[in-house]
Design a protein around this nucleic acid. Structure first.
Length: 900
RNA sequence: GGGCGAAUAGCUCAGCUGGUUCAGAGCGCCUGCCUUACACGCAGGAUGUCGGGGGUUCGAAUCCCUCUUCGCCCACCA
């Protein structure tokens, strides 16, 4: 702790030990963070559980950094902050991973059998799983790891079963034979949300179906000709004049030679194609409904693998659906039954896990009735209980809930929660039993029972985690204390999968929504604005960034690059440009800290209270008052920004304070006092420590490691104190000081003006210049008082006040009209200086003219608010002043065109 | 087909309730500096039709309309 700090910040030496120390001390557990008996309100965030086998990617990095920032912010504000982590068993994804591994051994899951396969997955999960949680620790996430759950844990599984049974008993879960989205590669049903619609360029085939009598035909249009083998009707709109006389007649289905009726149904759009549509009840949801209404048979023409089934003519059997499509079209063409083929762009469902084209398929599945759940969830949004940030995301939520369809929850997988339903095998019984406990015999007849083979959708367990992770259905203390939570941080792509459904389940089982604020951040993209993905290979690996730049730099870059509701662009091929600025900032902070912490001239005097404002006014220099006022402004700005989820603004405010104010100006200003060249070192040091302390706290949520490392090294800091539970800086009106802000601002201006003149005329850095300041308050007064600062920082050997004797030199005018003159004698190029100043004069003249025009406008003066008018008058006066001063300077310099 | 978002410096983006010297930051670029916290730094500098057009207003990067381009979400017209 007392070893000298290296001039270059090395996060790899700092981060891991600090993280371990935080965990040892239990600082992420709300129970152990009860400072001084203060028990704040609970503040809970549920981590979106990553897939148990996932590797950390930039999206996780962003999502969890945001959550960690919020949780650390609230923790420091004294709330009992709980961030609940967990992992998701991720049914399809995990099963796919293990199946791929098996495939390398030449095996399928069927070779192993269900039990052995599931055991294999468990082994895999135990071996490699949850690594992502360690990766989250590497980026500093302060989740309460003692509460980590896995969605397949025994207690969560029990809760899942409880929910299934309750919903079933309430009539909200049912089994039925419907058209569902089927992935022929994963061999399972999918929910509507899991079948992602993608626009594809397809074709629209117009086909002739002859009338059975042979004296006419009906032309239908289809994008999936292979399904015609399963057609059991053709439908037209009842009011369609073209077909009115044909309704009820029979058509001869080509290739199959089956007679099918022409039916009239409202679902048909007479304006599309020919107005006649083929009806395939087993392979299309609309057709299924039409089939129901007209009592049509459903012919399933495909196997689960999407090969043509035994229900089609032999020559097509076993063909892949796309091959069958080609064969069907070819045969129809040869029979002259293809009228035309048009290019047709349309949306086709794709499996969200493997991107295979989804096949709408008739099958027996379990469903959740969503309408009643959605109604409740919608009500809590409309009454303002639940709010989205950014607000417009609420529209998506509302639209989804308004048009919601039932949720298919059964999956034909082996990895997941087995559906708690048993079917009686006894002859004539047929009882279906839904049970909280495993059944071995039929409760009705005592006969043999067989459990449903299917498992539940992964999301059927994750939609419950806000309460199951806290012990539900047991009435635990955790549940009583930490439900409901407050904020949910998520990316927009899982609003429907997870976010909305959690609100439904929370309302249904807990009577309250699990959170009231939903913060949806953007998506991480590459420079071509493509979503980062494994398959594109355009990802940024957060762990690589941690290794090269440190976790704090990663976090700072993510947070500062992200504003509310917009995506974050990172260049995977140029980590340097994305992360070096943040690393540089960390290094700047480190060195500022190194300097401040090592320059105590004497033991620091404790400043009473929380705010540096309470040092006696008369002991403070202008610079002291200025940095205190700037610090106060930063406290307000940052706190307000954190509260409003504007994390980039919070980070930016602290960045500017530390770099521009504290490092560039204040530290430079106080050096003589710290070195003991002038008195007041103790005050300077105390103020520096205080404001730096505040800055570290404000920054801690974003850069937890470096702020902790520095904060702990403050003099007289108890060895077990951690900034992560240090109180959040409070705004203190006493620290406001507009006068100091103005006056020190003028000092900064005069230094800047002299530096600019020096640079303009190539004055050597080591060489001093003289400078003359003309005019009066407030600039003059402030500059007089801070004469030493000006001479030192602008390398001025002699600072005079009054009218300059020389004529030749560099001129500048400060914002209050104070004139600055740097005599340069022979060194100066008069023409050049005239040019420079003339341009400046022109700018000011234009400004003044525009302002006078504005003020001369009766409309403006009468209609604009009085204070705006006054402000504009003040501006005009100031600019006029500046203009006049500059004009006189030009005259003195003998610039010819100066007066024009 | 419906809905939404974005367009500001070479790049990535701020600019919130129309009015503060409003046209900004970082990176990159140019010039000069290894000034004893930091060259991952310091000082200075250049760079813009605020996507186009129209409108509202005393006043528009900001509000409205429209067009263009890019992106996203939703959708049972096969």
């Amino acid at each position: 702790m007392t070893a000298p700090l290296a001039p270059q910040y090395d996060p790899s030496q700092i981060e891991a030990p600090l993280y371990a120390w935080w965990r040892e001390r239990g600082l992420f557990r709300p129970e152990t963070v009860q400072r001084g008996g203060l028990r704040g309100e609970p503040y809970v965030i549920q981590m979106p559980p990553p897939n148990v086998t996932a590797e950390l990617h930039a999206g996780h990095g962003l999502n969890n950094t945001v959550q960690d920032v919020l949780i650390r912010f609230e923790r420091m504000r004294g709330r009992r902050a709980l961030w609940v982590p967990g992992t998701d068993h991720a049914g399809i994804a995990t099963q796919n991973v293990v199946e791929r591994l098996l495939a390398r051994e030449g095996l399928t899951r069927f070779d192993l059998g269900r039990e052995a396969f599931v055991e294999r997955v468990w082994a895999y999960v135990r071996e490699t799983g949850a690594r992502i949680l360690e990766q989250l620790q590497a980026i500093g996430c302060s989740a309460d790891w003692s509460r980590t759950y896995f969605t397949l844990d025994e207690d969560l599984s029990r809760a899942v079963r409880e929910v299934f049974v309750r919903l079933y008993e309430k009539g909200l879960i049912y089994r039925g034979n419907y058209i569902i989205n089927w992935c022929p590669r994963c061999l399972t049903a999918l929910s509507n949300e899991e079948a992602e619609k993608e626009e594809v360029d397809g074709q629209l085939w117009h086909l002739r179906y002859p009338l059975a009598t042979g004296e006419g035909e009906v032309v239908i249009a289809t994008t999936r000709p292979e399904t015609m083998l399963g057609d059991t009707a053709v439908a037209v709109h009842p009011e369609d004049e073209r077909y009115r006389d044909l309704v009820g007649r029979s058509l001869r289905l080509p290739l199959v030679d089956r007679l099918i009726p022409l039916v009239a149904d409202e679902a048909v759009d007479p304006g599309f194609g020919s107005g006649a549509v083929k009806v395939t009840p087993a392979h299309d949801p609309t057709d299924f409904e039409i089939g129901r209404r007209h009592d049509l048979p459903a012919v399933d023409v495909m196997t689960p693998e999407a090969r043509m089934s035994l229900a089609v003519p032999e020559r097509f059997q076993g063909l892949d659906r796309f091959e069958a499509r080609r064969r069907v079209v070819a045969e129809l063409e040869s029979q002259g039954l293809v009228v035309k083929v048009e290019p047709h762009r349309h949306a086709v469902g794709h499996c969200y896990r493997c991107d295979t084209v989804v096949e709408p398929r008739l099958s027996e599945q379990w469903f959740v009735r969503m309408e009643p759940l959605a109604r409740a969830a919608l009500a809590r949004y409309r009454d303002g209980t639940i709010r989205f940030i950014p607000e417009r995301r609420g529209d998506d939520y509302e639209r989804w809930l308004t048009g919601i369809r039932d949720w298919c929850i059964s999956r034909q997988l082996w990895w997941g929660h087995r559906i708690p339903v048993w079917y009686c095998e006894a002859d004539g019984c047929g009882q279906v039993s839904v049970s909280r406990t495993d059944l071995t015999a039929c409760p009705g007849c005592g006969g043999m029972v067989r459990q449903d083979e299917d498992v539940l959708d992964t999301w059927f367990s994750s939609w419950l985690v806000p309460f199951t992770s806290l012990g539900w259905p047991e009435q635990t203390d955790d549940l009583a204390t930490y439900y409901p939570g407050h904020t949910l941080v998520s990316s927009p792509d899982i609003i429907f999968f997870w976010v909305s459904r959690m609100i439904m389940s929370g309302l249904e089982f807990m009577g309250q929504p699990p959170y009231v604020r939903i913060y949806l951040h953007g998506v991480v993209r590459d420079t071509l604005h493509r979503k980062m993905s494994k398959s594109l290979g355009n990802g940024v690996d957060p762990l690589e960034v941690v290794e090269r730049y440190g976790a704090d730099a990663l976090r700072y870059a993510l947070v500062s690059g992200m504003s509310v509701g917009t995506d974050l662009i990172l260049d995977p091929n140029d980590l340097e440009s994305s992360f070096a600025p943040a690393r540089n900032f960390a290094n700047k902070l480190w060195n500022a800290g190194r300097f401040i912490l090592s320059h105590a001239t004497e033991p620091p005097r404790p400043l009473a209270g929380r705010s540096p404002a309470v040092v006696r006014r008369d002991e403070l220099t202008l610079a002291d008052r200025w940095i205190i006022a700037r610090c106060e402004a930063t406290v307000r700005e940052a706190t307000d920004a954190y509260e409003r989820f504007r994390l980039n603004e919070a980070a930016g405010a602290v960045y500017r304070f530390i770099w521009s104010d504290l490092a560039d100006w204040y530290i430079e200003q106080i050096k003589p006092r710290l070195y003991g060249d002038v008195p007041g070192g103790d005050v300077a040091h105390a103020v520096a420590l205080q404001t730096f302390d505040v800055a570290l706290r404000l920054l801690h949520p974003v850069m937890p490691f470096i702020t902790e490392a520095l904060w702990r090294r403050f003099p007289a800091r108890p060895h077990d104190a951690s900034i992560s539970v240090a109180p959040w800086p409070l705004s203190d009106r006493r620290a406001e000081d507009p006068e100091a802000l103005r006056d020190f601002g003028l000092v900064q201006e005069v230094i800047g003006a002299i530096r600019a003149i020096r640079a303009e005329y190539g004055v050597q850095p080591g060489q001093s210049v003289r400078a003359v300041v003309t005019r009066s308050d407030p600039g003059d007064g402030a500059i007089r008082r801070e004469q030493a600062t000006v001479t030192r920082l602008a390398k001025v050997s002699e600072l005079a006040f009054g009218e300059p004797r020389e004529r030749v030199g560099g001129h500048a005018v400060l914002s209050d009209g104070t004139a600055v003159f740097v005599p340069l004698g022979d060194a100066i190029d008069v023409d050049r200086e005239c040019g420079r100043l003339t341009a400046e004069l022109e700018r000011l003249t234009r400004l003044v003219e525009a302002q006078e025009k504005k003020l001369g406008n009766q409309q403006f003066v009468s209609r604009a608010p009085a204070e705006v008018v006054q402000r504009e008058r003040d501006k005009a006066a100031t600019w006029r002043e500046q203009r006049d001063v500059l004009g006189r300077k030009l005259e003195l310099l003998g610039c010819g065109a100066a007066e024009s």
